[in-house]
Amino acid sequence: MEYRKFGDTIVLRLEVGEEIAESLAALCEKEKLELCQVSGLGAAGQITVGVFDTEKKEYFSREYQGDFEIGSLTGNITRKEGKPYLHLHLVFGNPRQNVCVAGHLNRAVISATAELFVRVLPGSVGRRMDDEVGLNLFQFSQDS
């Protein structure tokens, strides 16, 4: 992972074999990031994405292996219980198959490169479990 700061934005490049979520979490710890907007693109060979089943209140994940272009990585970074909380979604596909897949990013191992922009916002937002919805939602309070 290599990155440079430009004002309120961190421009980040991931190398072959690096994993997106792990790398972003490490960046958060190193730079003490509390609240960020994330966007990016790249190429990955191993991807796990999920979709949330609102009736069962659980994620169902699927793993993919092959040559994939990341057409869009978007999301946010907050904190939950003092640790980085990544909420990322990914759209990826294989142009030879003319198919795209989207979902909640669990894991993506870079196969060529990834170029990410992490916009750092002032302040902090926490997370709290909402039992009715079954998800960790934004918590806008002093103790987040």
Rank of each mutant, 00 (worst) to 15 (best):
L121Y: 03
R107A: 05
L121E: 03
L88G: 09
Y59T: 00
L27P: 13
Q46E: 15
E69D: 10
T113H: 12
N106K: 08
F117N: 06
S23D: 03
R62E: 06
T9F: 12
A21D: 09
R128N: 01
D8P: 14
E18A: 14
G42F: 07
G42L: 08
D130V: 00
G82K: 01
S23H: 08
P84V: 10
F92W: 05
P84G: 14
R127H: 10
E55K: 13
G126C: 02
L105G: 06
S111C: 04
Q97N: 11
A102S: 15
A112G: 02
Q97L: 11
E132T: 09
G66T: 06
Y64W: 14
I70H: 00
L105N: 02
S23E: 09
L12C: 06
G66K: 12
G126Y: 00
P95R: 08
G71D: 13
A43H: 03
I47F: 12
F140S: 05
L33M: 11
V120A: 01
A114S: 14
E2W: 03
E15M: 13
I110A: 00
Q65D: 03
V51D: 12
L14M: 13
A43F: 13
L12V: 15
S144E: 08
A108Y: 05
A44C: 15
G82T: 00
L105D: 00
L105E: 03
G42Q: 10
E132K: 00
R13M: 10
L137T: 14
E15P: 03
K83I: 01
V11P: 00
A43E: 11
R13G: 07
V91H: 13
K30M: 09
G45I: 11
K80R: 14
V120E: 00
D130N: 15
S39I: 05
S61Y: 15
V99C: 03
S141A: 09
A102D: 11
F68R: 02
L41K: 12
E58R: 11
L90G: 05
R107L: 11
N106F: 10
K57D: 07
K32I: 04
S72Y: 07
V109M: 10
Q139D: 12
R127V: 06
F6C: 07
R119A: 06
G66E: 00
A108F: 05
R13W: 05
D8A: 14
L121W: 03
S72Q: 15
S141E: 08
I20D: 05
N76I: 07
S124W: 05
L41R: 11
Y85H: 02
A25Q: 13
Y85S: 01
E81S: 13
E18S: 08
A114Y: 07
T78S: 13
T48A: 09
E15I: 01
L35N: 14
F92I: 02
C100S: 07
N136K: 02
E55A: 14
L86A: 10
D131N: 10
T48G: 02
Q97S: 14
K56F: 07
K57P: 06
D131Q: 10
V91S: 13
I10Y: 15
E31N: 03
G123E: 00
